[in-house]
Design a protein around this nucleic acid. Structure first.
Lengths: 338, 338
DNA sequence: CTGAAAGCGCTAACAT
DNA sequence: ATGTTAGCGCTTTCAG
C-alpha cells in the first residue's frame, strides 16, 4: 500500500487538538500564537517526526526552496568545485540544489524542465543555446544567473571570469620566461570562454610584439583526451614551439602527457600553462602552472546573487566580474632551446 | 508583481473551451478523449507554452519525477562519473536529480530534507550515519538504494563493489611483480569500503604468505593531500617498502607525488596502485595502475534499480554486486630493490 | 490568539 | 467522450 504521506499537518493538528492553521503558525514561527501552544505543538512535531511537505508549501508560497544548477559536464573537475560551493551556500540558506548536465541534451529543454519542478532560482553555464532562446527564457524566468556568457539584453544577470585578461596573463607569463613561439590548445566549442581566451592569447602575443600564426592554434575537445591529441598535433606541426597555453587544465594535463609520449621534457623542452586551477593539476608531476580561478568563491557568489534575485525579483540585472591570476608551478620555466 | 504561474491548465482549458480534466487527459495521453479535441488541445498547449506544474502533479500522483542522489564529496572525481551516469539514466526516464553533498552535514538530515521535497527514490553513499538511523529511515522511505554499505536488516537494497576482492587483486598484482614489502595507504573514515579494502589487503598478504605488520598501514584523508602525507609517513617509517596500495586513486596520485618529492622513481623504486580507476589518473605520468570500478555502469545500475523500486514499492530488497578489476598502467612494475 | 473557508495546480473518481 | 466534484498538504485570507 502506497501512502501519500506519513504524517501531515492535519495529524499534528488533531493530536494537539488545534486547527491546521495553528500548527502552521507554530512551525513557521509566524503570526500570533501563544508561547504555550506553540511549544506544545513543536514538541508534538518533533515527537511525531512531522516535516512539512515542501511541495504543498511551495504551491501556496511560490517558494520551493530549490535552485537549479546547470553545468555542461560534471566530470570536468572544474565544475564539481563550483557545485560544491553552490551546494554549501544553498544549504546554509535552506536551499536544495537540482543539478543537471547538459552535454547530451537541449539546454533550453533542461532549463524549462527545471522550471516545471518549481525551482526558485537558477544558475547556469549555458553556452550552446542561442541568444534569442536564452533571452526569451530569461524574460519568463526571472531569478537566474548565467555564467561566462555575454548578453546585450539587459534582462539577465551574469557572472564572468575575465577570460581575455587571464589568457593575456598566461602569455605574458610565458613571454616573461623568454618564450617567443607559443602555441595554444583551444576547443572547438564556440563558447564565450573559448573565444575570449583565444582573443586574450592573441592580444598577449601582440602585446609582446610576437606575430600570431594560424598554425600555432589547434582545436580539440576541452578534455584530457582532447589535450593529448591537440598537443601532439601542434608539436608535430610546429616543432619549434617552446611553450603552450591550454584552454583549460584538463587539456594542459593531456598536453603534459603528450610531451612525455613524444620524449619531451616539461618544462625543460616545453613549458605548459593551463586555465582554471583545478586541484589535481597541482599534484601531478610536473605540477601544472595555471591561470587560476577561485571556483569556490565563484560558486558562493553565484548563489548569493541568485538568492538575492529570489528575494527581490524586480531588482536590476548586473554583471559580476572575477579576475583570475597566474599560479606558477612546475610546468613552466625559462626557455632553453635556441 | 510576482505571478504564481505563467499559464495553467485552467488557461488552456478556457482557451480550448473544455474542462481542465479534458486538458489533463490530452497531455497525459490517457482515458477516453476524441482524437480531434486532443490534437486541438495539444496544439494550444504548444502555442501557449504550457507546461504542467510538476509539484501540483506530484501532489495527486505521488510522483514528483525527482530522485535524490547523495554523495560524500562531489569534488572527488570518483563521484562525478557516477553522478553523470545516474543523470543520464534519469533523464532518459523523465527524471531529474537532486544532488547533495554530505561531507559537512548530518547525512540523515540531508536524506530527510530530500524526502520533504518529494523525491520518488533515493541513491545514497551514506557511510557515517549509524545503522539504526539508516535502517529507521529506510523503513519510512522505501525506494532507496544504498551504495557500499552493508546491512543485516533486509529492508534496504544495496549495491556493493567487491572491495575485499578488489584489494586482494591489487596485492596479488604487486606480489606477482615480485614485491614482498607492501604498504597500504588507508583512510581514517570508518566506512565499509575502508574496512573491506584493508581486509582485502591483509587477505592478499596472507594469501601470499607475507606477514602483515601495523607499521605498513598508514591512515589519512582519502584525498590528494591525504595521500601525499600518508605516503611520506609510510616511506619514512618503512624505507624498505617497494610497493604501495592506496585506498583510492586520489591517494595514489598523492603518493606518486610524495615519491617524487622524496626523490624516488615510480615504478623503478616504488610501485603504486590505487582503487577506483578515475579518468585523470590514467593521464598523469606515470599513469596510475588501479583497481578499476566501472562507475558509469554503477550509476546506471543504481538508477535502474531505484526506478524499479519506484514502480514496485513492494518488491523485495536485494544486493547488487560489482567486481572491480586491476588495470596495470605505468606506476607498477617489477621489484628492483634487493 | 485561534479557527473556518478558500484555493495553489493538478488528477482520481465518479458522474453524465 | 466529456464535465463535475473532491482532494493532495499546505498557507492565505478573513472571522471571530
Amino acid at each position: 500500500m502506497f501512502m501519500k504521506q506519513k504524517v501531515t499537518i492535519e495529524d499534528v493538528a488533531r493530536a494537539a487538538g488545534v486547527s491546521k492553521q495553528t500548527v502552521s503558525r507554530a512551525i513557521n514561527d509566524k503570526g500570533d500564537i501563544s508561547p504555550k501552544t506553540r511549544e506544545r505543538i513543536l514538541a508534538l512535531v518533533k515527537e511525531m517526526g512531522y516535516r512539512p511537505n515542501r511541495m504543498a508549501q511551495a504551491m501556496n508560497t511560490s517558494r520551493s526552496h530549490m535552485i537549479g544548477l546547470v553545468v555542461p559536464d560534471i566530470t570536468n573537475p572544474f565544475f564539481p568545485e563550483i557545485v560544491r560551493a553552490v551546494q554549501d551556500a544553498a544549504m546554509e540558506n535552506g536551499y536544495t540544489t537540482l543539478i543537471c548536465n547538459t552535454e547530451n541534451s537541449s539546454e533550453i529543454e533542461v532549463l524549462n524542465d527545471l522550471v516545471t519542478h518549481g525551482i526558485d532560482g537558477l544558475i547556469t553555464f549555458t553556452h550552446r543555446a542561442d541568444d534569442a532562446a536564452v533571452s526569451e527564457f530569461a524574460d519568463r524566468f526571472g531569478p537566474m544567473l548565467i555564467i561566462n556568457r555575454e548578453f546585450d539584453h539587459q534582462n539577465v544577470t551574469t557572472l564572468m571570469v575575465d577570460n581575455i585578461g587571464g589568457a593575456c596573463l598566461a602569455v605574458e607569463h610565458l613571454v616573461g620566461l623568454g618564450h617567443e613561439t607559443i602555441g595554444m590548445l583551444s576547443t572547438d566549442l564556440a563558447t564565450l570562454s573559448q573565444t575570449r581566451r583565444v582573443q586574450g592569447y592573441k592580444e598577449g602575443l601582440s602585446g609582446a610584439e610576437i606575430q600570431f600564426d594560424d598554425s600555432l592554434l589547434v582545436q580539440a575537445d576541452p578534455t584530457l583526451a582532447g589535450g593529448l591529441i591537440a598537443a601532439k598535433e601542434l608539436l608535430t606541426r610546429r616543432p619549434d614551439v617552446t611553450a603552450i597555453f591550454a584552454y583549460n587544465d584538463l587539456m594542459g594535463v593531456g598536453a603534459i602527457r603528450a610531451c612525455r609520449d613524444l620524449g619531451l621534457q616539461v618544462p625543460e623542452d616545453i613549458s605548459i600553462i593551463g586555465f582554471d586551477g583545478i586541484q589535481i593539476a597541482s599534484m601531478i608531476s610536473p605540477a601544472l602552472s595555471s591561470v587560476h580561478v577561485d571556483k569556490y568563491e565563484m560558486g558562493r557568489k553565484a548563489f548569493e546573487r541568485v538568492y538575492n534575485l529570489i528575494q527581490h525579483p524586480e531588482g536590476s540585472r548586473d554583471m559580476i566580474g572575477m579576475k583570475p591570476k597566474v599560479i606558477q608551478r612546475e610546468s613552466t620555466g625559462p626557455r632553453t632551446k635556441a
